[in-house]
């Protein structure tokens, strides 16, 4: 949450944190331009929400102890759990600053999910599709987005609509299989055969093919062997 000084058109800065009453936080912000200050006071529910994040407003002076939030928030922890006074291994030197401005300045979870985003290939999303995506928990969005966009990309679709999202869930297989390829697939144990079939069809689609042949099987095999998996 940030506050904006409308007069100076700048973010107000966090100044200090107080506890004006039990289960209440008083957070004071100041405009760096005009010096205006105001304090936000939280109710018990809001205070708990902030605490449940496991963060200290204004930054930590020392690293969190192991399982600190869990131990401190349990009403009735075991003696062994409360007796701790340990400091965990610090992640010092690996802070937001080291993640690059992009990761630090956007969603706090962006560092975690950035690796899941597909670079390039910008897809257009219809308003209805975006609205549908909004209903998905934020954690999951990048994965779902990536999955739908991969499906769209594989099928030459450039505009993602709710229908495309639906189709991506269980992409139907319209791939033709040459008899020899089909026969070779039978070498794979039956219970993992559907996974193998899907993987080969995915490779075929990536190459713009509409059928699976023995030579594609050779290529797939070579690819998996070269991956050293």
């Amino acid at each position: 949450m940030k506050f904006v000084c409308r007069k100076c058109e700048t973010f107000m800065l966090f100044e200090k944190l107080e506890s004006p009453a039990e289960a209440s936080l008083g957070i004071t912000f100041e405009c760096p331009e005009c010096g205006s200050r105001f304090s936000m006071v939280t109710n018990p529910g809001e205070t708990s929400m902030v605490q449940a994040l496991g963060v200290k407003l204004g930054g930590r002076t020392e690293p969190a102890g192991p399982m600190e939030l869990t131990r401190e928030t349990l009403k009735d922890p075991s003696v062994a759990a409360t007796a701790a006074s340990a400091t965990p291994q610090s992640t010092a030197g690996v802070s937001a600053g080291n993640m690059g401005g992009e990761a630090a300045g956007k969603c706090p979870f962006s560092s975690m999910i950035s690796g899941m985003q597909q670079p390039g290939a910008k897809m257009e999303w219809s308003r209805e599709a975006l609205e549908r995506m909004e209903q998905v928990p934020s954690f999951v969005k990048p994965m779902l987005q990536s999955s739908v966009e991969n499906y769209a990309h594989s099928n030459g679709i450039t505009l993602i609509t709710p229908a495309v999202m639906e189709a991506s869930k269980n992409a139907p297989t319209d791939m033709a299989w040459a008899p020899e390829a089909e026969k070779r697939l039978e070498n794979i144990p039956s219970f993992v055969r559907p996974m193998a079939r899907k993987e080969i069809e995915r490779i075929a689609r990536d190459r713009g093919l509409t059928s699976v042949t023995a030579s594609l099987m050779d290529e797939a095999k070579e690819k998996f062997m070269s991956m050293g998996i």
């Binding site: 966090f14 963060v55 993640m99």
Partner: peptide, 30 residues
């Protein structure tokens, strides 16, 4: 007074309460 969207588009966000930094640190620990 300008609308908020216009005002925000000209501003640079700063994590001065160090909340995002801590959350990123938590995730790095994971």
């Amino acid at each position: 007074e300008k609308d908020l969207k216009t005002v925000l588009s000209n501003m640079k966000y700063k994590d001065d309460a160090k909340v995002q930094e801590q959350i990123v640190d938590q995730l790095l620990q994971v």
